[in-house]
Amino acid sequence: MTDNDLLLQQFTAPHQVTPQLRQALVECWVEVTNSGGAAGFPFPPIDEKQAAPAVDRIVGSLAPQTSRLLTATVEGELVGWLNVRRDTFELIAHWGTLHHVQTRPARRGRGFGVALMSELRKIARDEMGLEQLHLAARGGVGLEEFYGRLGWKEVGRWPAALRLAPSDDRDEILMLLAPL
């Protein structure tokens, strides 16, 4: 990948998301989930009927101060995306929460996830005025190592909080990126 190949774009309002982008988001989410990715649907396989309403909720909630969508494309193909949200309640308005970080499985290992996370950090700090970011990650799939390489710190765990199957309980790992 060269810097010229990757296009990072953010969306801050529902009308900015075209039908083509919406469909690409749905397809990516199905692909990521069905390959075992921990991106919001715990029980694969899923199909477009399940992913589309979830994408629509994210797109419908986009607003400059409270919810942004960040996408990564290469030559017009969506290769990854994420959503960052903040609550405007005074006590917690200084931090945001990262949701649904995903890159297409066939495109992993090329730096797209790192590029998304780097751009997110700038947007959260410089445009949204956030001081820290939080996320919850599924244990047992190496996510804490990925985020750790990017400066995130594990701040806690909920042991066996996620039950993926009768004998497959996973920790939910709570992570923090601060300062931005």
Rank of each mutant, 00 (worst) to 15 (best):
E144S: 09
L143G: 05
E31N: 05
M175V: 01
S118K: 15
L62P: 09
G129D: 08
A54T: 11
M175F: 00
R22K: 10
R121A: 14
W152C: 08
I46K: 08
G129C: 12
C28G: 06
L177H: 03
T71A: 01
I92S: 14
L70D: 03
L150E: 08
R138V: 00
Q9Y: 02
R157Y: 06
T88K: 11
L6Q: 02
G151F: 05
V74Q: 08
L130G: 11
G37A: 00
Q23I: 10
Q132H: 05
P44Y: 11
F43P: 02
G96E: 04
V101Q: 06
S167K: 13
L78D: 05
T2K: 09
A161P: 01
A161Q: 08
Q65E: 15
L162R: 03
F11D: 00
D168G: 07
D168P: 04
Q16S: 07
W95V: 10
L116S: 15
S35K: 09
L176F: 04
D126V: 11
Q16P: 04
E27K: 12
Q50S: 12
N4Y: 07
A13C: 02
G140R: 01
Q20S: 13
G60L: 14
R107M: 09
P64S: 15
L8M: 05
D87K: 12
P42G: 03
T73N: 04
G148W: 03
V141Q: 08
S35I: 00
D171R: 06
A161F: 06
G76S: 10
D126C: 11
R110H: 13
R157A: 05
M1V: 15
F43K: 13
G37R: 01
T18F: 14
I92N: 14
A124L: 08
G129N: 12
P166R: 09
L116I: 14
Q50H: 10
R86E: 11
L150F: 07
A165S: 15
F11M: 00
E90L: 15
H134F: 07
Q20I: 08
A38M: 02
P105D: 01
F89G: 09
T33L: 02
R170W: 01
F112M: 09
L150Y: 07
R107K: 09
T66W: 07
G37C: 02
Q20K: 13
S61Q: 11
C28F: 00
R125C: 13
F43R: 12
Q20F: 07
L130F: 14
L176H: 03
P159L: 05
F146P: 03
H100F: 08
Y147M: 07
R107I: 01
V30N: 00
L8K: 04
N4D: 13
G142T: 01
L116G: 15
A106S: 13
A51M: 10
R85I: 12
S61M: 09
M175R: 00
H99G: 02
G129T: 12
G109P: 02
A124F: 05
M128H: 10
E172G: 00
I92E: 14
A124S: 11
E27S: 11
D5H: 06
L143M: 08
R170G: 02
E90S: 15
G156S: 06
G142H: 06
G80R: 01
H99Q: 12
R110A: 13
E90I: 15
L6C: 08
T88Y: 09
V101R: 07
A124D: 05
L143K: 02
L143F: 03
A63D: 11
D5A: 12
F146A: 13
L82F: 05
Q10V: 07
